[in-house]
């Protein structure tokens, strides 16, 4: 698997967090894992089709997802309700859209599917891909993982 695929997603994550949330995510080391069981409660999954097939997964703790939506709305959020998960889903959609634009510049033509939201602890997110590339970002609102599983 090519780690180059992950770089446009990392760059897009960085840029969207800066523009929309005035946050500068600090990137950790990229790691490879078999399958993906998320330890974080709010997972946004974006299916990718075309030259690269797989999924991009954004995993946030409940606390961070609430804080992000609070920062955007200026309102207090207490639960991972439909409003919060949908706002986070759109965030994943925007980052992934930006990432696929960069992939297109590298001659990989891809389309993305609407976000799917999976909430809960220790959820098995990916089972059909052997390797999943992941990276953890740390921000002032908490840390989150971005993963790319390629089928």
């Amino acid at each position: 698997m090519n780690a180059d695929y992950l770089n446009p997603i990392i760059a897009a994550t960085d840029s969207v967090f800066q523009t929309m949330l005035q946050l500068e995510p600090r990137k950790g080391k990229v790691f490879v894992q078999e399958g993906l069981v998320s330890r974080k409660e709010a997972n946004v999954i974006i299916g990718v089709t075309g030259d690269i097939k797989g999924s991009i997964i954004y995993s946030f703790s409940k606390d961070m997802a609430l804080k992000v939506v609070e920062a955007m709305s200026g309102m207090e959020m207490k639960e991972l309700d439909k409003f919060v998960t949908s706002a986070m889903g759109e965030l994943g959609n925007i980052i992934s859209g930006k990432a696929t634009t960069s992939l297109a510049e590298k001659n990989f033509t891809c389309d993305i599917a609407p976000p799917q939201i999976v909430t809960g602890k220790e959820v098995k997110i990916v089972t059909d891909a052997k390797n999943v590339l992941s990276v953890t970002f740390d921000t002032n609102l908490g840390s989150f993982d971005v993963s790319f599983s390629i089928n």
């Binding site: 709305s73 439909k82 409003f83 949908s86």
Partner: peptide, 21 residues
């Protein structure tokens, strides 16, 4: 209720991105 919550959550993020980017 869920339908309007979903719609307005998406709108929130969409508008911020549209204006900020």
């Amino acid at each position: 209720e869920d339908f309007v919550m979903e719609f307005s959550g998406r709108l929130l993020t969409w508008l911020i991105n549209h204006v900020a980017s």
